[in-house]
Amino acid sequence: MTIHFTVNGRAVSVDGDPSRPLLWVLRETLQLTGTKFGCGAAQCGACTVHVDGRARRSCVLPVLSLEGTAVTTIEGLAGEVGDALVRAWTELDVPQCGWCQTGQIMSAAALLSERREPSDAEIDVGMSGNACRCATYVRIRKAIHRASALLKGGAR
């Protein structure tokens, strides 16, 4: 059984065990190691990618569900939302150890795509699927507000 989809715009065909989660296709087959393994159970969000524009936890997403889809990873995150997030994350030096941060950014992108100016309470909903052991949450929150301001053009 061959499953066809795209990753960051590039066509991909995957054979073999259809229950294999997307995460391992990205990290091992395609060498896209910006998507991280943290728990294997959709508990931490380090593996978050976008499938057809929606945030998904790639560690529990079997490849068999991907036929015909478009997958975006941190390496392919582009567009104004992605740019604003990368800039905000960099300006505020959000990462500490950094392991969870690409997943955080992918979730933040899904949040901002839906809500350009999220409140703190909305950030609390959109981002609580992503855990950070270094607890960089103070800056994650700030960076999302900052990215939102950048998108609005009201940035300093």
């Binding site: 190691t33 998507t35 393994f37 990368v86 030096d93 959000v94 990462p95 950094g98 941060q101």
Partner: peptide
Amino acid sequence: DTPDKVAGRAVFGLD
């Protein structure tokens, strides 16, 4: 290390 960590380029052992 921020730019590489934000871009997913930083190399950790598991990478």
